[in-house]
Design a protein around this nucleic acid. Structure first.
Lengths: 192, 192
DNA sequence: CCCCGGTTGTCTAATTATTCGACATTTTTC
DNA sequence: GAAAAATGTCGAATAATTAGACAACCGGGG
């Protein structure tokens, strides 16, 4: 499991890398959140541990929310755990509503942080699977509907095509599966 | 849109009913959370506004989390907005992780609360729709799989049955849709 | 009430599709 | 390189589909 730390404080980055290094497969750290899209588009990060404040003139966490949104709008988005020294309840709630898997306040407790990261990753995986399944659901729904108003012949052809596909192009086996003679299958295919 | 207020403080209940009464179709309030299952199983509540502390000896919000879980484990669960006077960040985060749509702290701002309730309801509706679609997806998937290893004849029969169904039993129309002769359809049906 | 358009159930004869057995050929597999 | 499996193609027997036709039936409107 690969973790990406994003915090503008070099000391925090070093500490976190040290703490998490022994627990996760790979731990990288960057100080500049603008690098996030580039890094994540390479797609091998399981969780991002994201600081909420990068511009020291505003400590309201809006930077963190912004980057959270950027991350979560990506396809195959990683889990995101937010971390902040200036967290209040409304900010935490807002972050969770925008799809963060967890929200921790500095100073953190190491073991707890590790646990939260692990849980975040597995929760995110579940969500991603659900998302994928939803996409598939829409497709299936559409196909079922099309199928509904199909002519018998079209239906037949489609099923034949699918079966041949499934048999890896072996027409004899396909004919067997379809319950028709091999010759009949040939005829049908010849008639296009 | 129907709102259920759950708070052991009668004054809070009265105030909330007054505030929300003009904004929502129906607003009910109870003081005892143990009534929740009974009320919600009647299934006409869109959102629950749930206090986090019922036992005044423990103000850690565990009661709220407990009831939140109970509500969210129901089929067709309503939206839940938590409300508390003793909220801290970890509690808010935990509540959101457990599926609450929002988390507000006393004292609340009326307009904001109303807005949060509305948004909570629509968010919950989206989630519920997704859930339903997922269920349907599984079913469709199963059917598609079955279909995959069907004989041409079985396939034909299934499609014919479905089409007749869709045409409300009108065989002439069904035959038309299927692109076969009416007589052929009769023959097929007669052959069982 | 009766007529009418649409459906149903059934029939024939002509057409078309499917099956079976067989054979030569090509491709796969061991 | 030989055996096994798959392909491509026949012809003849069998089965299914088609078009056209006819009597019967049902439901609504004149």
């Amino acid at each position: 499991m690969k973790i990406l730390i994003v915090d503008d404080n070099a000391a925090v980055r070093t500490t976190l890398k040290l703490v998490l290094g022994g627990e996760f497969e790979e731990v990288a750290a960057v100080g500049d959140p603008t690098l996030l899209p580039a890094i994540l588009s390479r797609g091998n990060v399981d969780a991002v541990l994201l600081d909420m404040n990068f511009d020291n003139r505003k400590l309201d966490g809006s930077d963190g929310l912004f980057w959270l949104e950027r991350i979560k709008s990506m396809a195959q988005a990683p889990a995101v755990v937010l971390i902040t020294a200036f967290g209040d309840v409304p900010l935490a709630v807002e972050a969770m509503k925008r799809g963060a898997e967890d929200f921790v306040t500095k100073p953190w407790e190491n073991g707890e942080l590790i646990e939260k990261l692990r849980k975040a990753i597995s929760k995110n995986r579940r969500l991603r699977d659900d998302g994928r399944r939803l996409d598939k659901a829409k497709e299936l729904e559409k196909r079922a509907e099309e199928q509904g108003r199909m002519t018998l012949d079209e239906m037949k052809r489609k099923h034949i095509q699918a079966t041949i596909e499934k048999c890896g192009g072996n027409l004899t086996a396909a004919a067997e599966h379809l319950g028709v003679n091999r010759q009949t299958l040939y005829n049908i295919l010849k008639r296009e």
